[in-house]
Design a protein around this nucleic acid. Sequence first.
DNA 1: CTGATATCAGGTGAACTGAAATCA
DNA 2: CTGATTTCAGTTAACCTGATATCA
Lengths: 134, 134
Amino acid sequence: MKQVELATRAHLDDMFRPIGLTALQYTALTVLERHPNLSSAQLARNSFVTAQSMADMITALEERKLIVRHRDPDDRRRLVLALTANGRKLLSRHRGKVVALEEQMLDGISGTQRRELRRILLACRANLAEHPAH
Amino acid sequence: MKQVELATRAHLDDMFRPIGLTALQYTALTVLERHPNLSSAQLARNSFVTAQSMADMITALEERKLIVRHRDPDDRRRLVLALTANGRKLLSRHRGKVVALEEQMLDGISGTQRRELRRILLACRANLAEHPAH
DNA sequence: CTGATATCAGGTGAACTGAAATCA
DNA sequence: CTGATTTCAGTTAACCTGATATCA
């Protein structure tokens, strides 16, 4: 599992190095695309990392003008995240290459098996979250 | 994939923190158990990392007297790795807990599906290694 | 000479803990 | 007061590149 993740990240890092983005930053953007108006803390929980870990990435993406943050008027503690037009443009510009990489990784694996893989990974994640590591 | 790996490592790190071992160090020991007499460079390739990255871990394990290194008489460049009695004892002492964690992670997933998962992960790794990220 | 192994030195990304401020 | 969010500061594990020495 780790080796697949490592290899995938190396490929993605190569892909995004020319535009100065890491694999994880790109991934965070795609999460924000699917789930708009998350706070940094929610995004961290979604990614199973601490709020502090997520903060660095958020700051970098904000400096690159790919996301913006604004206070939630209903809960003034929360800083809601949103993609900018720049962020959306960047995603659509690179989506094809990322899909192609996914296709390379899953070459020879049927649609049924891909759905099975997805289901099993989600189950593993849930099973490990039940008795959290401390 | 990354989240499952992260959660697994967090659990393993908690499990081995009392004896001052990281999850990856434990994993390296299990690899050496299954494949005795590997060199550090072979172990690195096996794990898809550079020889330099592996070196730190090897040094730590040697200092802990869990492995020993000795020159291969047939090829005096190679430093062959072997588990010590201490290393083997440590593995057998903790195997049960690690198997239990694996069981927790795979709870509700059938034997057939587990074999499928393994096969797919190996295929993904091979597919990503074909056009390496330089 | 080329290529593999090991090692030394230095650097980075991406996670962590701890502590403090803000606010529901 | 308790609990969630955000932020500041410092730390760590586990990677990396580059250079060098040994040896097949």
